[in-house]
């Protein structure tokens, strides 16, 4: 896992959705311990940028170089809605070779392990997605609106988790229109790259 330090590099990135170019000429470089807050109004391309960085979408132009495993949290928690939370998290934990119980307890979900995912509130689902993320041995975290639905305590916790990831040599990219409390975080305003 620690073989080579994580690195995330984007050069002259452009993104198009349908007929519309969302942003162009975007470059960024992140190394171990660095964090970036991607800001901008709704629909400006924050999520699209994260999907480009994750390699889940192909850029219109430019390239992304990533070193290290990627962990992504977006609005879809990828947890089977009909399964109890414990088993839904357990599936990913087993794939990743981690411990889902400890992660769920860390996110304050210990009481909810027997509750089917479909009965969870959106904040609880977001916390479950974060629990999935921390069991994953990923050095690069891409968080798409991680604070949506979270209460103040959980938002603090999310910021602490991101700080821990950076402190242990990881990279965090946070796309959010809300302020995110993470010390030493750089900011990228997507409005500057709109055509």
């Amino acid at each position: 896992m620690q073989a080579s330090p994580p690195r995330l590099l984007a050069q002259a990135l452009a993104c198009r959705r349908g007929e519309r170019v969302l942003f162009a000429g975007l470059g960024l470089e992140l190394g171990p311990g660095e964090a970036l807050h991607v800001r901008g109004a709704n629909g400006i391309g924050k999520s699209s940028l994260l999907r480009l960085l994750a390699g889940l979408a192909r850029p219109e132009a430019g390239q992304v170089i990533r070193q290290g495993a990627i962990g992504l949290v977006d609005e879809r928690p990828a947890l089977d809605p009909h399964l109890p939370l414990g088993r839904a998290l357990g599936f990913w934990a087993a794939l990743d070779g981690g411990k889902s119980i400890a992660a769920a307890a860390r996110l304050g979900l210990g009481e909810l392990l027997d509750v089917p995912v479909r009965y969870l509130s959106s904040g609880q689902r977001k916390r479950a997605a974060l629990a999935r993320l921390i069991t994953q041995p990923a050095m690069i975290w891409l968080l798409d609106e991680p604070l949506n639905g979270l209460d103040a305590a959980a938002a603090d916790l999310a910021a602490r988790l991101a700080a821990e990831r950076c402190a242990t040599g990881g990279i965090c990219v946070i796309a959010s229109h809300q302020p995110f409390a993470l010390a030493g975080m750089a900011t990228l305003d997507l409005a500057g790259f709109a055509p």
């Binding site: 495993a69 990627i70 879809r76 990828a78 809605p81 990913w92 999935r132």
Partner: peptide, 12 residues
């Protein structure tokens, strides 16, 4: 696909 599970598999 709707759940995003395919994305998570791809990332792994």
């Amino acid at each position: 696909l709707t759940l995003g599970a395919f994305d998570q598999w791809r990332l792994r």
